[in-house]
Amino acid sequence: MIKKKQKYTVSAPGSLMLFGEHAVLHGKPALVSAIDKRITVELLTRDDDEINLHSTLSGTQSLQLQDIAPDLWRSLPKWHFVLASITFYQKHLPSGFDLKVTADYDAPIGLGSSAAVTVATLAALTLWLDKKGLMQQSLLRHTVQVIREVQGIASGADAAASVYGGVIAYHMPTLKVTKLANTYPLTVIYSGQKIATQSVLEHVSTLQQRHDQVFAHLYAAIAACTHEAKQAWQISDWQAVGELMNIHQGLHDALGVNTQKLVDLIFALRSDPKIFGAKISGAGMGDCVIGLGKADIKELIETISAKNSQAQLIPVQISSQGVAVIEN
């Protein structure tokens, strides 16, 4: 008797780091926002052992159920996070399946795409294999485990935003998530340069080894910025949040993750009177910068184009929705 195919569709939002980069890896708090750019995973069960993967980001890949092994993801870089998620449930897979990944944005831009695809893939597999349904904290814990398996080091802050949605305060040692009220527009610019997070972390670690006490103070200062920004965000004191963004950016510079390209984009944002503050979002040395407020788009495009032809303005809004089941 042929089993009826089951379909599970889940989406998860990308994210932006607002405060706490690098320090979050040392037990300090972070503020992160889910955004309205999402990754959707559609899982359709099969009645054989074939596993077919298709992605708008990574192309196609076909496997057999018996191919799934703990280190399989290492041999297929484009599918690292999806395959590591599948491997997480390896012992519980009753059959093959077709899995389709669709993204609202390009992976090189960043925006927490690795965390979002991991959250969505694990959520779809959980709905299929665990009839208890999705539990946010369990999903977060499993996602962080998978990402650390692939990357080695990961705070889980972007995963927390993808699971819970909205603007959150996050504490890595306990995976504690606190949702914050209020929202405000952001202006996001992609620098045109993508640097692997692991490479940036290695760069910071090398510098830290030579100046350990100084870096301890830097992380404490970042934590203070994050704590004050959390308080200011909750009372909609956007001027204070913007000032703290600018201070935080100075600490990014001290960590050694700033570049001339990023500086030019940050000062282009700060030159707009509608922007309260601007900083790197994420590990740095590339990827995105963010400004608190809605910039004059036409003028901003003219300014950044003159400095960096590869830079892109990314239309983004904070999203209150975290992981969402579309079809079950």
Results as ranks from 00 to 15, higher is better:
G250P: 03
G250S: 02
G250K: 07
L251C: 12
L251A: 11
L251D: 08
H252Q: 15
H252L: 15
D253M: 15
D253G: 14
A254F: 08
L255A: 02
G256R: 05
G256M: 06
G256W: 06
V257K: 03
N258Q: 15
T259N: 01
Q260G: 01
Q260A: 07
Q260N: 07
K261D: 00
L262T: 08
L262M: 11
D264C: 07
D264A: 11
L265T: 07
L265K: 13
F267A: 03
A268N: 14
L269P: 00
R270H: 12
R270Y: 09
S271H: 14
S271A: 15
S271K: 15
D272G: 09
D272Y: 11
D272E: 09
D272S: 10
D272K: 14
P273G: 00
P273C: 04
K274Y: 01
K274F: 04
K274G: 00
I275N: 10
I275W: 11
I275Q: 10
F276E: 09
F276H: 14
F276I: 09
G277T: 02
A278C: 12
K279D: 02
K279Q: 04
I280S: 02
I280Q: 05
I280W: 05
I280A: 01
S281N: 06
S281K: 10
G282I: 08
G284T: 11
G284F: 12
G284V: 06
G284W: 10
G284D: 08
D287A: 05
C288V: 14
C288D: 09
C288M: 12
V289N: 11
I290E: 06
G291Y: 10
G293F: 08
K294H: 07
K294A: 07
K294V: 03
A295V: 14
D296I: 15
D296Q: 15
I297D: 10
I297W: 09
K298E: 10
E299I: 13
E299P: 07
E299V: 11
E299F: 09
L300A: 04
L300Q: 06
I301E: 04
I301G: 01
I301S: 02
E302I: 04
E302H: 12
T303I: 15
T303C: 15
I304W: 09
I304A: 08
S305G: 13
A306Q: 12
A306H: 14
N308H: 01
N308E: 03
S309F: 05
Q310N: 07
Q310I: 07
A311Q: 08
A311E: 06
A311I: 07
Q312S: 03
Q312I: 02
Q312T: 00
L313R: 05
L313T: 05
L313Q: 02
L313K: 03
I314K: 10
I314Y: 07
P315S: 02
P315G: 00
V316N: 01
V316L: 03
Q317W: 03
Q317N: 05
S319H: 13
S319Y: 13
S320H: 01
S320F: 00
V323R: 03
V323L: 01
V323C: 05
V323M: 04
